[in-house]
Design a protein around this nucleic acid. Structure first.
Lengths: 140, 140
DNA sequence: TGCTAATTAGCAATCGATGCAGATAAGGTT
DNA sequence: AACCTTATCTGCATCGATTGCTAATTAGCA
């Protein structure tokens, strides 16, 4: 995802308005590696801008995703998560603490056992224990 | 997933009862490669047993999944899908018709860019066009 | 400063899934 | 074959995530 400044320009030139709510969300998402849900983002945003609506958070996330600035991912936590890292990567989910990490694979795995399926995208979800959880043996 | 006959024995010896509803679902799921949702399964079951409850379908699917006879997967269609194929495999989803196919990869891809994460499972979701859709150019 | 269209907030509605309770039935026992 | 205990079934309420809708507000250009 681009910087808040770049997004401001991009939104304006797309005919979209740049509101204080959106600027806040641009900042909260920039370089954010926590893969937040809409609700998590709303909680953080609410502390900085009391009264901001969850609906607005959803709307802005949808806008950003449509512009290709965000990737929305599902890792089985029940709710959608948003990732400002739009490079070609995958995810590792800790079964204990639920943390989601970006991971990269050297070679995209080939597809076997299915003829004439043209693949446009492949996404891998790894499950296991993150370093912290396997080290401390902590529970949720 | 094992045969309806084997499941009947397994359920009884687990202290669970074998009802007509469950027997029907055993049959509908055995060798089923359509990766149905609970709702889709309920529709089919309703034609053969009018009045069967969606709640019962969910319950039986949960039981089967807990016994390891079913795998529940999420491929971004909004609802959970159930797969009686419990071998180590992955899935290819057609962006056009929504069909889900089982696929196999030769080598499990290695994980890079993240230290000290112990992987217990990896699941790949391929997206693209299935043979039928890319051949006919049909739309949903 | 004013105008107009986009946006916000708040609430209703939807959708998938689960909790709950009374009626029912499986299946071992007598 | 009748009986009893306990699991199951159905229907409905509930819940969490997300989207639809609308009146009031505001960004941003003329």
């Amino acid at each position: 995802m681009r910087s808040p400044e770049d997004l401001t320009v991009a939104f304006r030139s797309a005919g979209l308005k740049v509101t204080p709510q959106r600027q806040l969300l641009f900042r909260l998402l920039h370089d954010n590696t926590t893969h937040p849900t809409a609700d998590a983002l709303h909680h953080v945003a609410s502390e900085l801008m009391p009264g901001i609506s969850l609906r607005t958070v959803y709307q802005t996330l949808t806008d950003l995703a449509e512009m290709g600035e965000l990737q929305s991912i599902e890792v089985g936590s029940g709710s959608m998560r948003f990732d400002p890292n739009v490079s070609d990567h995958h995810h590792a989910v800790c079964d204990q603490c639920g943390a989601v990490h970006d991971v990269y694979v050297t070679h995209a795995p080939e597809l076997h056992g299915l003829d004439s399926f043209s693949v446009s995208d492949a996404h891998i979800v790894y499950r296991g224990l993150c370093g912290l959880c396997s080290a401390t043996g902590s529970h949720r």
